[in-house]
Amino acid sequence: MAITASKTAAMDSPLYAGRRRRNAVAKGLAFAATIFGLGWLVLILGVLLYKGIGGLSLSVFMENTPPPGAAGGLLNAIVGSLIMTILAVLIGTPIGILAGTYLAEYGRHDKLSSVVRFINDILLSAPSIVIGLFVYEILVAPMGHFSGWAGAVALAVIVIPVVVRTTEDMLSLVPDTLREAAASIGLPRAHMIVRIAYRAAQAGIVTGILLAVARISGETAPLLFTALNNQFFSLNMGAPMPSLPVVIFQFALSPYAEWQKLAWTGALLITVTVLGLSILARSLTSARKS
C-alpha cells in the first residue's frame, strides 16, 4: 500500500513529468528527422524520374550529342564513360587488391601497413577535384593536350583506395584457422592467399569493385580537365573524350531547352546505374552473410 502510494506520488511529481515530456519531445524530433532525411531521397528521385523519363527514347542511345537547338542523343558520352570506367577499373583494381592483400596478409601489424592504411583513408575521402588537378599536372600538362587516358587515370586514382579498403576488410574476415590449415599441409603463403583466402573473400572483393565502379560512374570533377569533353563520337584515347557526367554539367548550365532535357535524361541514367550497382553490391555481401 505504502509503496504504491509513494510510487504514484513520484509519478505525479513535476520532475518525473518533465523527464517524460522531454523524452516524448526527443522521440518526436527523432521521428521527424528521419522523415526529413528520407523525404529528400524520395523528392530527389521523384523529380529525377519525372524530368528524366520524358526524354528517354531509343535515340538517346543511338545518336550523338547534338549541336545547340537540334535533337540528338547521348551515345558518344555513354561510350566514353564506359571506356574510361572500364580502363580505370582495369588499372586500379590489380593495384588495389594487391595493396589490400599486403595490409591484410603480409604486413598485418607492421609499421608500413599502419601508414598505408592511414594514407589510404585520406585518399578515400580526398576531394575528387584535387585528383583531377593532380592528373592534369602529371599527364595533361606534359602531353600538352587533354586525353581519354588522363580521364581513365584520374578515375583509377579514385578506384584504388576503395578497392584497397574493401579487400583488406574482406580478407580480415577470413578465419585464421583456414590459413593455418593451409600452412599445415605445406602450402606456401602466396598459394594460400590466392587459393584459399581470395576464394573465401571473393564475394566481398567483387563487392568492393562494384562499389568503386558506382563511385566513379558519377564522378565529374576529376574528368573536367583531364578528359575534357568532345561533341563527337571518339574512340581515340589520346584525344579529348566525352563522358556522361561532364556532358550533363555542360548541358544543364546551357540555355537551350533540348540540352537541358538531355541533361536530365543523362542524370537519370547515371542515378539508375549507380543505385543499381550499389544494390547489387549490397545483395552480394548480404547473401554471403546469411
Binding site: 554539367f249 536530365w264 542524370a267 542515378t271 549507380v274
Partner: peptide
Amino acid sequence: AIELLAGIPSIIYGIW
C-alpha cells in the same frame, strides 16, 4: 535508404 542517399553522385544534387 539513407546509405543509398550517400551514393547518389554529386552532379545529381547539382542539377536538382
